[in-house]
Amino acid sequence: MTLLSIESVARRFPNGTEALRDASLSVAEGDFVALLGPSGCGKSTLLRLIAGLDAPDAGALHWQGGPPGPGEIGFVFQDATLLPWATAEENVWLPLRLRGIARAEAQPEIRAALARVGLQGFEGARPRELSGGMRMRVSLARALVGRPRVLLMDEPFAALDEFTRHNLQDDLLALWRDTGSTIVFVTHSIYEAAFLARRIVVMTPRPGRIATEIASPLPPQPATRFTPEYGALVAEVTAVLRRSMS
């Protein structure tokens, strides 16, 4: 079932930059979509439009069951952006707290969200006591805790080292399989898009527009990384990206 359909949205910033032109996309419930492209192709802008943090100059977004209300969007940024003074548990509590849910009442949900990202036992840890990867896990738990209708991720693993990035990618894939969440994932990494997404949406810059879309035939599991099919998909996406840039 279609959760969200985006119909030829455009966005031009006050400084004249045409960030998006005539972009259309539909996202089904339980989908894992990657928006892939070089910097300046409008993928983050599109994500902000979906989040409702920005509004399109033209076109429209149609949500199944009406636009999302407070707390119905889970957002993960490039940096973990945790509250440095708060513990992991308090950071994950934040979205629920802002909806007026007391800590004691939220506790089971918070614990479950932290466990889901592999951080049981770290409830009382503060951000500075955690590694970059663990901070990103707390950030992911914070985005999941309110059971959002869609999880939006803006290059969340770009700043991590490769080993940590692979672990997080594997765990995100498992999490998506287990929970059936809908995920829209922005990345500039072809490898990441090909490994994670069920649908790879290729975008091109100046003006930002959607060039094409590639469906992934790969099974969503860690072993995929080492298969020839994965290599073939990376090659295909690379070729498409090259063609659409020239």
């Binding site: 989040a51 409702g52 943090l53 209300g69 407070p70 707390g71 969007i73 957002f75 940024f77 940096d79 952006t81 509250l83 934040l94 979205p95 802002l98 909806r99 309110g146």
Partner: peptide, 14 residues
């Protein structure tokens, strides 16, 4: 506070 955190507060209707 970084703009991302302000966005996060907005998204949660703060």
């Amino acid at each position: 506070p970084p703009p991302e955190l302000l966005d996060l507060f907005r998204l949660n209707g703060a």
